[in-house]
Simulated assay, not measured.
Amino acid sequence: MRTSAFWRLMDDEFGGGYSRTLARTIVLADLGGRTPEEALGAGISPRDIWVAVCDLQDVPPERRLGKDITPK
């Protein structure tokens, strides 16, 4: 997953403004206690960050692929 896809998914799920706030403030224990922004800066895979955000925020599986993609 590219960083741009990560931000698209964040915006789709949480809205454009709130997704940026969330990325600066939530702490992902699964990723060493980093915020999503810190994790991106540390070179952690955007996919791993997205999964950690989804787990923490209880995003259901049917919404983890974005608005236009439904899981099989």
Rank of each mutant, 00 (worst) to 15 (best):
P46T: 06
S45Q: 15
A39V: 05
G66C: 03
P46E: 09
M10V: 00
P36T: 05
G41I: 01
T70Y: 08
R34A: 11
E13Y: 01
R8C: 01
A5G: 08
R47P: 01
Y18P: 04
E13S: 01
W50D: 02
E13H: 07
P60F: 00
T35K: 02
T3W: 11
P46L: 11
D30M: 05
R8I: 05
D68W: 10
R64P: 06
R34D: 12
A5S: 06
I69Q: 03
I69A: 03
R47H: 14
S4Q: 13
Y18W: 06
V59E: 07
F6N: 09
I69W: 08
A23Y: 02
Y18D: 12
L22Y: 08
D68Y: 11
A23P: 01
C54A: 14
I26D: 06
G41V: 02
T35D: 01
E62P: 02
S45W: 00
Q57R: 15
I49E: 10
L56Q: 15
T25G: 09
I49Q: 11
R47A: 14
G32T: 11
F6I: 07
R34F: 06
R2K: 15
L65S: 04
D30E: 15
W7H: 04
P61K: 08
L22E: 05
P46S: 05
R2M: 14
G41F: 07
L9Q: 00
T21E: 11
R8W: 00
P36F: 02
R2Y: 13
T35I: 12
V27A: 10
A29T: 13
E13V: 13
D55I: 02
P60L: 02
R34M: 14
V27P: 07
Q57K: 13
D55E: 15
E62C: 06
S19C: 13
G41E: 14
I44C: 08
M1Q: 12
R63Y: 12
R63E: 15
E37L: 10
D30S: 15
R64A: 09
S19E: 01
T25I: 11
D58F: 07
P36C: 04
S4L: 10
V59Q: 01
T3N: 15
T25H: 12
E62I: 13
E37R: 08
R63Q: 14
R47S: 13
R2I: 15
R24L: 08
E13P: 02
R63T: 00
P61H: 12
S45G: 15
D11L: 01
D48K: 13
Q57S: 10
T21S: 10
S4M: 07
M10H: 00
F6D: 09
D11Y: 10
L31C: 06
P60N: 02
L28W: 00
F6E: 07
P71T: 06
E62H: 10
V51D: 09
S19N: 04
L56A: 09
I26H: 11
R63C: 10
L31H: 04
T35C: 09
D48C: 03
R34H: 14
L40Q: 07
G16K: 07
D68I: 05
A52L: 04
R63A: 11
A23H: 03
V51R: 10
T3F: 08
T3A: 14
I44D: 13
L22F: 05
V27I: 15
G66T: 06
R63S: 11
A42G: 15
I26C: 13
